[in-house]
Design a protein around this nucleic acid. Structure first.
Lengths: 222, 222
DNA sequence: TTCCGTTTTAAGCATATGATTGAATTGATG
DNA sequence: CATCAATTCAATCATATGCTTAAAACGGAA
């Protein structure tokens, strides 16, 4: 939150931008539904009415915040998947590569420095895990379209599995990502710091390894 | 929700019990923070003041709802873990057995029929995944104590891994469980029903297999 | 029936929420 | 400087929230 203050104090940013930054941070930390406009505008040093002037409503603000980060990440995901599908023409794409195509765009976006690393992880985690009520429908369908493409890729990647099992193992993987990205610091508290302080890159590599093992193992199916 | 109506319409249940049932259902479906007392009492056919009369406050109601289901499940988890630790005295407990000790009490509680199966899954998923803000501290520490025991068990179960990796892989597993239990029906929507309709038992077996593979594989560590 | 503790109820409290208004303020252009 | 559109602001609206209160309704014991 100190990080946020530093960014917001730069007078160069307009009200619209400051609201977006505050909203991102608060949404990432506590979720979309529970954060009020007054908290957002308070943190942004703006008037409450500014949200409705610049965005129209709270829902449209959420939409703007989500779209602005999810769109580029999603496009990069799909572009990497396209590349893989061309590269592995008619042969199964390695599971690890698909998982990388899903997660590495998050790393790239972090590197671009648009949001603090910690906040962006939590934000992206929510976009994977929070469906239905709290997210605007536009954001949901944005994710759904992308997820459908990945579902197809996963199924081709594990031809020994039936359709159901492949889908569920993808779902399991999304759970790992959502929970780890959003609640990563929970483990630190819970383990009294014995979980160390791995870099995001290290963490994502370990998530990928975990999911790859879970997806590829052969055993009981659904 | 039709299920709920049936239960609530039975005149045998007192106001306190009807409030508990409504609250459980709404919390499971939409989370603790966003459900209002008026929604709860409305669904229960009770007066708003009844919550404060019977429970004291919204927080204490959440506490009552959480405790009443988490306590027995947690105790069963710990008792199964105790049994395993005696059975595998000074030898590593198989990872699959630890995962079973964590998840099978959920199945048992479902079998007891205290809550509809669908709702109870979502409820237990939230108790694994939602930490911090939305949950009362008592529920958090209840979970934390249990998780600490399981963390120790997981570490002994995979002596080839360093402490950090073991903890993170446990955390990954919790993510799978939380997401699948709470958002299981999301996959059905997202996949147009191609994910089938597995029984809870089948689903939990597959979660266990997935996590076991993810925890046991040997490769890059943190 | 009367009595009395338990429970339920309607009404209200203080505060919070998303949204709107119309008046100020700003800042660039003529 | 004056003009004018874009922006910001305080004030306000209708509604929702958690909680409290005091009166009413209930139900068993005397």
């Amino acid at each position: 939150m100190i990080e946020l203050m530093k960014i917001l104090s730069e007078e160069t940013r307009g009200t619209r931008e400051r609201i977006l930054l505050s909203a991102e941070a608060l949404f990432a930390e506590r979720g979309f539904e529970v954060v009020s406009l007054r908290e957002i505008t308070g943190a942004a040093g703006a008037n409450v009415a500014a949200v409705n002037y610049h965005f129209g409503s709270k829902e449209k603000l959420i939409d703007a915040v989500v779209t602005r980060h999810l769109t580029p990440v999603n496009e990069e995901r799909l572009s990497q998947l396209d590349r893989l599908e061309k590269q592995f023409f008619r042969t199964p794409i390695p599971v690890e590569e698909i998982l990388k195509a899903f997660l590495s765009p998050v790393l790239q976006h972090i590197a671009s420095g648009e949001m603090s690393e910690d906040l962006f992880k939590k934000f992206m985690g929510r976009l994977i895990g929070e469906r239905g009520y709290s997210l605007p429908t536009s954001a949901c369908s944005l994710f759904a379209v992308m997820a459908a493409r990945f579902a197809a890729a996963f199924q081709r990647a594990v031809p020994q599995l039936n359709e159901e099992s492949a889908l569920w193992r993808m779902h399991f993987s999304f759970g790992v990502m959502a929970h780890t990205l959003t609640n990563g610091d929970t483990l630190r508290q819970l383990s009294d710091g014995r979980s160390g302080n791995p870099s995001t890159e290290t963490l994502l590599v370990n998530i990928i390894d975990f999911c790859r093992a879970g997806i590829e193992f052969e055993g009981r199916e659904l």
